[in-house]
Amino acid sequence: MSILKVQNTMLKTLIASLLALTVFAGCIKGRDEVRCQYDACAVKATNAEIDSVRAYLAANNITDAIQHCSGVFYRITVAGTGAQPEPCSFIGASYTGRRVDGSVFDAGTFPQPYQLTALIRGWTNILPLVKTGGEVILYIPPSLGYGGREIRDANNNLVLAANSMLIFTVQLTSVQ
Rank of each mutant, 00 (worst) to 15 (best):
G148Y: 06
V23L: 12
I167K: 07
Y38E: 04
T22W: 12
D39V: 10
A65T: 04
L14R: 08
C41P: 00
N61D: 11
F73Q: 05
C36R: 01
R35G: 00
S89I: 06
V43S: 07
P142L: 12
S70A: 03
K131R: 15
I28R: 07
V170Q: 09
C88L: 00
Y38P: 03
A45Q: 09
A118N: 07
I120C: 09
V34E: 08
R35N: 14
A40T: 05
L21M: 14
K29W: 04
G133Q: 14
Y38W: 06
L21Y: 15
L4G: 08
F105T: 03
Q67N: 05
S52L: 08
Q112N: 10
Y139S: 07
G97L: 05
S174L: 10
T77N: 02
S52A: 13
T117R: 15
C27E: 13
A79C: 00
S174T: 09
N163S: 06
V23P: 02
L144P: 05
C41G: 03
Q67I: 06
L172I: 09
R75T: 05
I15K: 11
E150L: 13
S174F: 05
L138Y: 12
V104C: 04
Q37Y: 04
Q171V: 15
P141C: 13
N157V: 15
E150K: 11
R75G: 01
V159R: 06
N156K: 12
Y74W: 04
R152T: 14
G80P: 06
Q112A: 15
V136F: 12
D32R: 12
I28H: 11
G80K: 03
Y114Q: 14
P141L: 15
T132G: 09
S174M: 11
S52D: 10
S143Y: 13
I62Y: 00
A58Y: 05
D153I: 13
L11T: 13
G108N: 08
